[in-house]
Amino acid sequence: MSEVAALPPPESAFGRFARRFIEDRVALIGLGLLVVVILVALLAPWIAPQNPYDLASVDVMDSRQPPGSHAGEGFTMWLGSDGVGRDLLSGILYGLRISLTVGIVSGVLAASLGLMLGLLAAYAGGRTETLIMRVVDLQLALPSVLVALILVALLGKGVDKIILALVVVQWAYYARTVRASALVERRKEYVEAARSLGLSHARTMLRHILPNCLAPVIVIATVQTAHAISLEATLSFLGVGLPQTEPSLGVLIANGFQYMLSGKYWISFFPGLALLVTIVAINLVGDRLRDVLNPRLER
């Protein structure tokens, strides 16, 4: 019981945070957009006019139709169709699911891995710390797009593989940040107190140090998620990302790339717009989170 009391009451902290967050109108718009994006992605199977992955419902005779055309099955393709007859609106809704899944899952995994290793480094010190931090340094010295490109080329196509590659290129950012804040926390009195009370290392780390490192992690997580989504699109564009038949936004854009000059702008334009809105929304939220949670953190 005493431990819980030692923590600041969560409601009030969150309330203060929320109040500060909504002071900025632009950030609020960003948050609104993000909520919409996540909602439509979640609801895709119910609101999309077509299941773009079901080949029985996609007809090649409907291919390359401009926005507003009617599909053979009767519904209106508000954003037109792509090169194999997929309704673009449906494709974008489902593609958003994949892009967000890739971004969020890889972000959560990378954050968990980075958190663990960062905490371990800060807490254990000595050889363990040196080893982890050297790997982090090396990882950060290599540009993520290049590492991911080579990794995915080696691993092959697929959602799981691209997530793995994205975790590999992201975890080091978290580890570095967590270690830095954990080092600061470690010197604080309450940790000393907890340790002198004879609490186990793991308990001290998880109950006391970890919560205080979360703010910067959340900030990095938003930036990195946007980065991961964009990176996935880039890799798919370069032809090493996700498979063609269940397209993410990046694959949709890449498929539309060949139609750009022939005037069929919509095949690549609308998925590009969806990608842009998603990333901008996340970045707006991330920007504000940084200001509110940790004004000193600059990228």
Binding site: L55, V58, V60, G83, V84, G85, G156, V240, Q244, T245
Partner: peptide, 26 residues
């Protein structure tokens, strides 16, 4: 257009009743 052709053929086979999946590789 290789991967598109495969997708189109897969659509046609699916209409025939053969549930067709597509896997394109580098």
């Amino acid at each position: 257009n290789d991967s598109k052709i495969i997708e189109a053929v897969a659509q046609m086979f699916t209409r025939l009743g053969i549930e067709t999946a597509v896997e394109t590789l580098p």
